[in-house]
Design a protein around this nucleic acid. Structure first.
Lengths: 121, 121
DNA sequence: ATACTACTTAAAGTATACTCTAAGTCAAGC
DNA sequence: GCTTGACTTAGAGTATACTTTAAGTAGTAT
């Protein structure tokens, strides 16, 4: 059984300790088990969840959406359909965002090329 | 010479009128010419700028970065190198973000597929 | 025993980007 | 001439996601 401290989790995933506690308070992760002194001991299941949350947050999924997903998850098997719908919706949102960003990327590239030509004169 | 109102710009680009004024106050667009009654009259140059800002904002470039770029632009030709560097930096940042989002997208897709299999049972 | 460091909590503070409010002006229609 | 509706401003308010603060505890090193 793995038991690692908040410090170690923070280092491993490059997430602020306060952010980890904040995510826990919001119900995105945990509740994390605590030892007799009240210190958090993160286990491998917790780490998987953290990795998922980190990935989704870095992609722009909101705390609220992740909270909702976790809530449904914790409610058990009868929420599978709703969870799936939620994920599919977020997938679509993400797709659109990626599109916007790709458009901006292309525009930036063009602008830079233009500068390069100008600069070369 | 085109002259369109803030209302029309707001409709055309789906940007809140308050946001347009906010962007102007921050120096991202304009200053927009005003008629004798103090009403803004947007011209085609303004619209091009607005389109650029909208595109970059939708891709996540910060107000601060756009402000900096516009500032350099307004300072004249001798800032071209710095502008190019700024754009290239933002391009790299965008690339990374797109990567993160693509990763999350793939992860979501996998999760959904998993649910679909489970659900089919 | 005392100093040091990392942990704990609840709550306040910060950054970013809007978005709304209040008070007022102005042109058009009745 | 008065109402209506869109505009103006400065400044306050909101949402989201942290991040910091203050006050306190617990385990380890000297």
């Amino acid at each position: 059984m793995i038991k690692i401290t908040i410090q170690e989790v923070a280092l491993k995933y490059e997430i602020n300790k306060d952010t980890l506690r904040y995510y826990e308070k919001e119900g995105l992760i945990g509740p994390i088990k605590k030892n007799s002194s009240g210190i958090r001991e993160y286990q491998s299941d917790d780490l998987n969840r953290i990795e998922f949350v980190k990935c989704m947050r870095s992609a722009g999924l909101s705390i609220a959406v992740l909270k909702e997903y976790i809530k449904l998850y914790d409610e058990g098997n009868h929420t599978k359909e709703r969870r799936m719908a939620l994920l599919e919706h977020e997938k679509e949102v993400l797709k659109e965002k990626i599109d916007f960003m790709q458009q901006a990327y292309d525009k930036l590239e063009k602008k830079i090329d233009y500068y390069k030509k100008e600069y070369g004169k």
